[in-house]
């Protein structure tokens, strides 16, 4: 797997395309409405913080999207986000403290 260097990514982010780069923390703030400010979960709602590695988070969202995993709201939610946004969310919750 090839991963673009951080410097290259930063260049991208500083260019005119910056406004189109998903902001994981801002997107993730919507998840906070049910999963808590840091994704900690509680009251029957699962934690989405740290315990999921980045890839696991992405796989879960992909399974929700495809209705391949039993869920109540997550399928309906996951289908509203782009691949880049899900990746940004995964990165955000992997770091959330």
């Amino acid at each position: 797997m090839r991963i673009p260097s951080l410097a290259a990514a930063a260049l991208l982010a500083c260019g005119t395309a910056a406004a189109q780069v998903p902001d994981g923390a801002l997107l993730g703030s919507a998840c906070a409405g049910c999963h808590g400010v840091t994704g900690e979960g509680g009251h029957g709602i699962p934690s989405i913080r740290q315990m999921h590695g980045r890839e696991h988070f992405v796989e879960l969202m992909r399974a929700f999207r495809a209705n391949e995993r039993p869920n109540t709201v997550m399928g309906r939610i996951a289908r509203g986000y782009t691949e880049a946004e899900i990746a940004a969310l995964a990165a955000h919750f992997a770091r959330a403290q």
Binding site: I3, P4, L6, A9, G24, V58, A88
Partner: peptide, 16 residues
Amino acid sequence: TLLAAAPVAAAALAAP
């Protein structure tokens, strides 16, 4: 594509 997109998102996280 998901994994490839991640580093770009990581750069955005550094922006704040």
